[in-house]
């Protein structure tokens, strides 16, 4: 258990602080981003529900508010605040998948959003 926790902590730390060192997979992140997931809330089956399938473009919340693009190439400071990143992964993973995302899923998504 403590080994898993430690591994998770390390992966998360790598994923957030120095993603280039982690074995994150942009293609897997893209597939995750585009997929329709189950287990979450019915109105939000996918990342694309609000963020669209083009993260270089602005998205829109269900309440109609614009969401800045998620691609780092367009918004270089998108993931520079780890607390903010964790807050939104926490909310949105629960909305879309009905659970927390794994460290691997988060790292992959970040890698994808860095790669485009």
């Amino acid at each position: 258990m403590s080994r898993i926790t430690l591994t998770t902590a390390v992966v998360v730390a790598l994923g957030l602080l120095a993603p280039s060192l982690a074995a994150a997979d942009a293609a897997a992140g893209k597939a995750f981003w585009m997929a329709n997931h189950s287990g979450g809330k019915p109105d939000t089956p996918s990342c694309t529900t609000c963020h669209t399938n083009d993260p270089t473009k602005a998205g829109q919340t269900r309440a109609g508010k614009a969401i800045d693009p998620m691609a780092v190439s367009v918004q270089p400071d998108r993931f520079t605040d780890p607390a903010k990143v964790e807050k939104w992964f926490g909310r949105n993973c629960n909305s879309v998948l009905g659970r927390d995302c794994t460290a691997t899923e988060k790292a992959d998504v970040l890698e994808y959003l860095k790669s485009i």
Binding site: K41, D43, R62, N94
Partner: peptide, 8 residues
């Protein structure tokens, strides 16, 4: 459960 989303 904030109008269909988690807004914790």
């Amino acid at each position: 459960n904030h109008f269909g989303e988690d807004a914790t």
